[in-house]
Design a protein around this nucleic acid. Structure first.
Lengths: 346, 346
DNA sequence: CTGAAAGCGCTTACAG
DNA sequence: CTGAAAGCGCTTACAG
C-alpha cells in the first residue's frame, strides 16, 4: 500500500494525496475527507525514507552520551553506570516527543562509536544531536559542528578558543558557583581542612567544580593544599579510592566530593576506616541522585536541574532545525544546594 | 557529494561505487581501492534514506518503554522514574551497537504515543522493536505483531490465549520461582504473618510475583489473608501508601514487596510508624536496584539479570531481522536471591 | 484546486 | 568485471 494505491482508491492523484498528508491548505474539505478516509481504512502510513528523500525531515534527533566510566568497567556492566545520563536521556525523549520528534540514543565509548555518531549525521538519519558528558572541546564535536550539522552541547566551555564551539547551543550548570557556595558553607560551619575529590578532569563540570573550590578557599583565606585535592573520575569506585588515598595522610574534616556517585564510594571508604559521618568527617556531593536522600546520613549535595537543562537543549535544537537557523545560544543554569545531614559544625 | 560525484571522481559508474560501498566481491582490488580513496577523501557517506528506499535496512531498532509511573507523576518528573528501565535501555543500546544497529528510544505513556510507536514501524523507520514493561497482552502490541513486524517482548505471557503473542520472541524473568523462594525464605526464618505489596497488576511480573507468594504460603500451610495483600504500582509513592495501609491493621512480621522502589517507600512508612527494620518487621524487595545495597539496613532482594535479558532480546530480534525469519522463542531467566540485612529470624 | 512529471540518492537485476 | 536503466515511494515546482 503506497500513495499511488491510495490515490487510485480515492480517485485523485498522488499529488493530492501528498497534499492531504502534509496538510496543505489548498485542498477542499470534501477531497481531504475522502482521502483521509481511505488512508485510515487501509492503515496507510507514508514511507519515512521516501519522504525524507523527497525533502522532508526525519524528525529524529540523536542524543550522544559519552560515559567515561564505560572504559574502566568490566564487560557486562559498562552501560549501567550513570543515573545522571539516564535522566538526561529521559527528559530529552520527553521533550522531543512534544515536538513530534523521536530520539536515537547513542553511547560513545571509543573511536568506532565516534565514527558511527558522525555517520548518522552525514547519512541524514538524524536532523540534529545533543551531546552530553563529552570531553571539553572534543575535536569530534568540532568536526560535526563545522560540517554544518545542528548540535546542542551540555557541559562544554562557551569561552572556547575554538570558534566552532561557540557557534552552537550550549547549556551548562553553574558548577563554579555551586562549588564555591558549597565550600563557603563548610567554611561557615567552621571547617578549614576541606578536601576535594575531583570528577573526570577532561569534563568541564569537573574543571569548574575544582575552580569553585579553590576560589572559595582563597576568598576565605585558607591555603590550598595539593594533598587535599585528589583526582576521581565520577565513578563510585574512583570515589572509594580517592577517599582512601585522602584519609591516609593528614585528615580533612570535610570533603567536597565531585559527584554523588563518588560520594557513595567515599562513604564506604570512610566507614571502612572506622570514621563516622558527619561526626568525624563532613561530606557534600553533587548531582542529587535519587540515592542521596535515602542513605544514612542523608547526603547534603547540589541538585542539577536535569530536566530543565534537557528541556532547553531539546527545544533550542529543534527550533534551530525547524527554522534552519544556525543560531548560537548559551545558558548557565543555577544549581540548588540541598542541605541534608552529612555535615556538622565544628 | 553523492554517489554520482564519487563515481565521476573515481572514473567508474554509480553501480560500481555502490558495489564497493556494499562490499560486494565482484570488484577488483584496484578498483575498490581507488573508489574507497575518493570516498574517504571527500568524507562521503551514502544517504541512509536513499539506501533504505532502494532496499537496504535502516539498522535501527526501537525500544519501547511503558512506564506506568508516568501517568501518576507530576509534569516535570514523569520520565525520571525507573532505574530498571534505564538499565534495560542501556544494555540494549550496548548490544545493538555490537551488531551495527542504533536504537530509537521511545517512552509510551498514552494512546498518542502508541500511535507514534506504530507509525515508526509502518513508516519503516525501524527494522524491529523491543517492548518492555508493557501491559500483559496489550492489544497495541498484538496489532504490531500481526502486521508482520519483528518484535521482542520482555515481561509478556507466553501462554497467552492470543496466538499473536506466542509467535514472538519473549523474555521473562522467573518471577514466580523467585517470589516463591522469597516467601519460603521468610517462612524458614519463622515468619507466618507475611504480607505482600503487589506491583502494577496489569504487568505479568506483578501477577507472577503474587502467584509465587500465594503458592509458597499454601505449600507452607499458611492461610492466605486478603488483608495481607495490598496493591501497589511499582512506584516509591505506592509502596509508601501500601505499607501505611498494611500496618494500620494486624501487623505482619514480614513484607515481601513487589519491587525495590516500593520498598523505599515502605521503609519510609515503617520508620514514620516508629518501627525498626528488621527488628520489628522484615522486608524483601525485587530488582536489586543500585540503592538497595546502600540503604541501612541493606535490602535483601531479588536480582533480575537485566543485562542478560536485554542481550537475549536484542540478539534474537536482530537475528530475526537479518534472517528475515519470523521465528518465535521464549526464555525464562533465573532470578538471583540477594541476602542482605533487612530480615531477621523470629 | 489539481495532475503529470521530474527529482531526491541510492541498489540491483540485466545485458554485455 | 562493469555500466545504463529501472525502480524504491515520496514531494514539489510547474502548468493549467
Amino acid at each position: 500500500m503506497n500513495s499511488k494505491d491510495i490515490a487510485k482508491l480515492a480517485g485523485v492523484s498522488r499529488s493530492t494525496v501528498s497534499r492531504v498528508i502534509n496538510n496543505y491548505d489548498n485542498v477542499p474539505e470534501e477531497t481531504k475527507r475522502k482521502v483521509l478516509e481511505i488512508i485510515k481504512k487501509y492503515n496507510y502510513v507514508p514511507h519515512a525514507s521516501a519522504r525524507m528523500l523527497a525533502g522532508k525531515r526525519n524528525k529524529i534527533i540523536g542524543v550522544f552520551l559519552y560515559d567515561a566510566k564505560a572504559e574502566a568497567q568490566t564487560e557486562h556492566k559498562k552501560v549501567f553506570a550513570s543515573a545522571y545520563f539516564n535522566n538526561f536521556t529521559s527528559a530529552i525523549i520527553d521533550t522531543a516527543k512534544e515536538h513530534g520528534y523521536n530520539v536515537l540514543a547513542v553511547m560513545i565509548e571509543n573511536s568506532k562509536d565516534w565514527k558511527n555518531a558522525k555517520e548518522i549525521f552525514y547519512n541524514k538519519t538524524i536532523d540534529g544531536g545533543i551531546f552530553i558528558g563529552i570531553k571539553n572541546n572534543d575535536p569530534n564535536i568540532k568536526e560535526i559542528i563545522e560540517a554544518g550539522f545542528k548540535v546542542a552541547l551540555v557541559d562544554q566551555d562557551t569561552k572556547s578558543a575554538d570558534e566552532a564551539f561557540s557557534k552552537s547551543i550550549i547549556i551548562n550548570a553553574d558548577n563554579f558557583t555551586a562549588a564555591y557556595k558549597t565550600v563557603k558553607y563548610l567554611v561557615n560551619k567552621g571547617h578549614t581542612k576541606i578536601a576535594h575529590i575531583t570528577g573526570d578532569m577532561s569534563l568541564l563540570s569537573a574543571i569548574e567544580r575544582l575552580e569553585g573550590y579553590k576560589k572559595a578557599l582563597i576568598d576565605s583565606g585558607i591555603l590550598i593544599k595539593n594533598s587535599f585535592i585528589v583526582r576521581g573520575f565520577f565513578t563510585v569506585e574512583s570515589g572509594y579510592k580517592a577517599a582512601k588515598k585522602l584519609l591516609l595522610k593528614e585528615k580533612p574534616t570535610a570533603i567536597f566530593i565531585g559527584n554523588d556517585s563518588m560520594a557513595l564510594g567515599a562513604i564506604q571508604a570512610i566507614q571502612e576506616l572506622g570514621l563516622k559521618i558527619p561526626d568525624d568527617i563532613s561530606i557534600i556531593g553533587f548531582d542529587d541522585i535519587e540515592i542521596a536522600k535515602y542513605i544514612t546520613p542523608s547526603l547534603t549535595t547540589n541538585r542539577i536541574p536535569i530536566y530543565d537543562m534537557a528541556y532547553i537543549a531539546t527545544t533550542n535544537l529543534i527550533n534551530s532545525i525547524e527554522e534552519n537557523s544556525s543560531f548560537s545560544a548559551s545558558y548557565l543554569i543555577p544549581v540548588e544546594f540541598i542541605e541534608r545531614n552529612s555535615c556538622r559544625s565544628l
